[in-house]
């Protein structure tokens, strides 16, 4: 797996841009998120297949060449309830995790039903921990990025199981830990001690952000969700492109099921752009 430091993109968002009105009515959950508005859930989980086909690999980062998004291919096997398990590890304050959350929700929705999603705003905690007073570059820390939280969400699918681990809440307080089984698998796909991380059935590991969180600057949950069906929209090209890549990776562990999804043009395009280009020999990037 490629292990290179990320360069965060700059976003200096005004406090006034936090869409407080959307969070005010719902009680916060333990990671600082609130239940996602029904319309947001509906838009994210119902991105038209035609849009996804049109986007293909889209404009998301290619993990083979990107310094900020990594991929690892392994021969591990992570299952739950007799099905391949997808595990996401995130921090509620991490804007990179927020960026990835949109693509993951879209991808999971192609294999089953996702309910109880949360809406999370990453706030400024990352800006505090990312500060390097000795570095002369401006601090790029994507404050107040809107994302989705899988904490407490339910997922049902005949093909895969899904587990979410939210390590810390929006203020950096410890919240959840992966199980020993999940941790072993995360280690296998080189995802130990990193976030955001996505383990797909012990066969694929992804870490880093699939696109620049700056894309979501000044955008509310509704605006982000509302853009996903437009294949020409910048956010859709990044989120849907990432969703197609992850869908393609999930298809490899579901053995191509469901065929309508796994054989779709968008998923095939993403697989061709990334998964099939990976060396077939020894997996890249042994851990050091």
């Amino acid at each position: 797996m490629r292990r290179l430091p990320v360069v965060c993109g700059a976003l200096l968002l005004a406090l006034a841009l936090v869409p407080a009105a959307q969070t005010a009515q719902a009680a916060p959950r333990s990671d600082g998120s609130t239940p996602a508005p029904a319309q947001v859930t509906q838009l994210v989980t119902g991105v038209p297949a035609s849009t996804l086909n049109q986007v293909g690999a889209g404009d998301s980062r290619n993990p083979i060449t990107s310094q900020d998004f990594g991929i690892s291919k392994r021969n591990g096997r992570l299952t739950s309830d007799g099905k391949p398990e997808v595990v996401v590890v995130a921090l509620a304050w991490c804007p990179h995790c927020a960026a990835n959350s949109w693509g993951l929700a879209v991808a999971l929705s192609r294999f089953g039903t996702l309910t109880g999603l949360g809406a999370v705003n990453t706030g400024t905690y990352f800006c505090k921990v990312a500060e390097d007073p000795c570095n002369l570059n401006p601090l790029y820390c994507f404050p107040y990025t809107d994302g989705l939280s899988f904490l407490g969400a339910s997922y049902s699918s005949p093909y895969i199981s899904f587990a979410s681990v939210v390590l810390q809440d929006v203020n950096g307080r410890n919240l959840q830990k992966p199980t020993r089984r999940e941790e072993r698998s995360l280690f296998t796909v080189h995802l130990a001690h990193t976030a955001p991380a996505l383990d797909i059935g012990g066969a694929w590991g992804f870490n880093g952000s699939g696109y620049d969180p700056g894309t979501l600057a000044h955008k509310s949950w509704s605006q982000i969700a509302g853009s996903l069906a437009n294949a020409h929209n910048r956010i859709a090209r990044e989120v849907d492109g990432l969703a197609n890549l992850w869908t393609a990776a999930i298809c490899t562990v579901t053995k191509g099921r469901p065929g309508t999804v796994c054989r779709s043009r968008g998923v095939q395009a993403a697989a061709a752009a990334v998964l099939r280009k990976l060396p077939s020999g020894p997996p890249p990037g042994p851990p050091s």
């Binding site: 292990r3 991490c94 804007p95 960026a99 921990v129 990312a130 007073p133 001690h193 880093g208």
Partner: peptide, 15 residues
């Protein structure tokens, strides 16, 4: 000197 810039979200090599 300061360590390399932090890399949350990045492919995560500890600086």
């Amino acid at each position: 000197s300061c360590p390399a810039p932090p890399s949350p979200g990045g492919p995560g090599a500890p600086p």
